[in-house]
Design a protein around this nucleic acid. Structure first.
Lengths: 116, 116
DNA sequence: CTGTATCCGGCACGATACTG
DNA sequence: CAGTATCGTGCCGGATACAG
């Protein structure tokens, strides 16, 4: 994705651009998509998204959290346990994510369009 | 958007990522969105997208064309006239674009998008 | 397990000037 | 009008090491 605009920018008068600014970043949409299925732990996300590094995963998760799209829950345990899930706002992105998935399946004709 | 992955990458097994790779770039989605309304000329797009430079507009348009999302028609006239419009594949993105617009309007609107 | 800290390269993008 | 050409750069994102 584009780096889109740095921070939400109302001047453009285009809500699409503002929406884009929240989901820019190389992994955000994929993260959100994975979370559609339900709560996931840090390493679970890591495994589900091949190629992402700890740094980027952490960074993108933090941004998503800051934008109120996901919820981060930390359990004070000896082996740390952190769970990520979609916030209400994040869940409202479902139509977009599914539309994107559907489009990808339809127009990129991947025979293995396995439901990730 | 993220720079996504450079070129379509099948290995991830996620059609969403492949779809994303086609719409990465800072202005692509906005361009596509503007073209939903119909054919537009180069400078018309330029005016509709404040902040975009000639270079970037040209570049993004070329990528969109290469990915088969838009159609570029050149009229051999003395004042050059180039028209851009969505291809069939591009038009198939309409649900995604509208979903994104709807989400933006709903969640980023002037009033708080509380949506508990 | 779930992160932070640091270093660093590349390319995405911008600014400007020029052209058919 | 609709682009190229060229140059410069921010910062995104990868690699690696360290930490609670």
């Amino acid at each position: 994705m584009p780096r889109a605009v740095k921070k939400a920018q109302t001047s453009t008068g285009c809500s699409v651009e503002r929406a884009l600014s929240l989901i820019d970043g190389k992994w955000k949409i994929v993260i959100l998509y994975k979370l559609l299925r339900g709560t996931l732990r840090f390493n679970e996300l890591r495994r589900l998204i091949p190629g992402v590094t700890q740094r980027m995963l952490t960074h993108q998760l933090r941004e998503l959290e800051a934008d109120g799209l996901i919820v981060r829950v930390v359990y004070a345990q000896v082996p740390p346990r952190v769970e990520y899930s979609l916030s209400t706002r994040g869940q409202s992105l479902e139509p977009v994510l599914l539309a994107l998935k559907h489009w990808g399946d339809t127009n990129l004709s991947s025979r293995e369009a396995e439901a990730a």
